[in-house]
């Protein structure tokens, strides 16, 4: 590749691909690494236009990239994270990774002859390994982040994440003077159910109830498990009438729900408390307290029903 014997040896032995183009994008030179992984004959490549030799290249992008190198006489880069590969090359881990082509980090270098840019050198690093492990790591991180938000049993939001959501929705509602409603559910006689049919039955009931309630909420509502058999839903931009309407519907659907457990048909019901944000609420915890009070009211006045914070105020005033 060069007059210097060291350079020639190193370029040929290097585990980095080297491709040299002239300013008309014709291939002038390549090294052994590139040749081996491209599975092409030198005849098909040397002296040929780069887009003819490697039709897989995104031509417009590639030309724009090279024009910045030529015009600004500065190097440019392309990472596997943005583009998995430029050239369709084979790699050294075809068995133990699922990558079809070599993941590549590419560097574009201007080469000057007599202080004027005459060629472009493209360096290709094989980062299939890095790509493989980074992708795995990202997947694990995603799963971890998800596990951190999700209740393991019911697969709805856990308490910690649900409260963070409420915190955000509460400040948003305050800031933009929007409505915000909270619905709290507590399954009726759940302890009795556990004592009668066992905890596995209780778990099945929690899973199916959570699924049912989720399916009855809007996409923008945030639903989570608040405690043992308590669930809660955040309904952004919803007034009391709307929220009570949703709560009534869920209450009726739960009543109709038949859960199969070991050939037995299990029926349950839920008590529901509804509250909406009001000017006296300073923190999101105030909203929870109000919904909790309404829920207590529903429990105390016969269960399997919906009570709202407004009604309680009304009762208290009387």
């Amino acid at each position: 590749m060069s007059a210097n014997p060291f350079c020639t040896t190193i370029a040929e032995q290097l585990n980095t691909g080297i491709l040299i183009l002239d300013l008309d994008y014709n291939i002038v030179e390549w090294n052994r690494f590139f040749a081996i992984h491209a599975h092409k004959d030198a005849k098909e490549v040397i002296g040929k236009n780069v887009f003819t030799a490697f039709p897989e290249l995104p031509q417009k992008w590639f030309e724009r990239k090279l024009s910045s190198v030529i015009q600004l006489n500065t190097q440019s880069f392309c990472s596997w994270e943005q583009r998995h590969h430029l050239f369709e090359l084979s790699h050294t881990r075809p068995i133990t990774t699922d990558s079809h082509f070599m993941a590549q980090n590419c560097t574009f270098l201007p080469i000057e002859t007599d202080k004027v840019i005459s060629h472009i050198c493209i360096l290709i690093e094989d980062v299939t390994d890095v790509c493989h492990y980074q992708t795995k790591l990202n997947k694990v991180l995603d799963e971890l982040a998800k596990a951190n938000r999700i209740d393991g049993l019911t697969q709805v939001f856990n308490r910690k994440h649900w409260e963070e959501c409420l915190d955000k929705e509460f400040s948003r509602a305050r800031r933009y003077d929007h409505g915000l409603a909270l619905i709290m559910f507590d399954l009726d006689h759940f302890k009795l159910l556990n004592d009668t049919y066992g905890h596995q039955c209780g778990d099945t009931v929690l899973i199916e109830t959570a699924q049912k309630i989720s399916s009855l909420l809007r996409l923008c509502d945030q639903f989570g498990r608040y405690g043992g058999e308590e669930f809660a839903a955040i309904l952004p931009e919803t007034d009391l009438i709307g929220a009570v309407d949703v709560a009534e519907r869920i209450c009726k659907e739960i009543e109709k729900l038949v859960i199969k457990f070991q050939d037995k048909d299990i029926r349950i019901s839920t008590s529901v408390g509804v509250a909406t944000i009001n000017p006296n609420d300073k923190r999101y915890e105030d909203l929870i307290s109000n919904a909790d009070l309404a829920l207590y009211e529903a429990k105390a006045t016969g269960r399997n029903k919906v009570c709202s914070a407004k009604e309680i105020e009304y009762i208290l005033e009387e």
């Binding site: 995104p58 992008w61 910045s68 500065t74 190097q75 880069f77 990472s79 994270e81 943005q82 583009r83």
Partner: peptide, 19 residues
């Protein structure tokens, strides 16, 4: 739609820094 926002940002950054 030729390239992602991330790629554009990286591209421009490299140009600004190196020039």
């Amino acid at each position: 739609d030729e390239l992602s926002v991330e790629e554009q940002i990286i591209d421009l950054s490299s140009i600004l820094t190196t020039t």
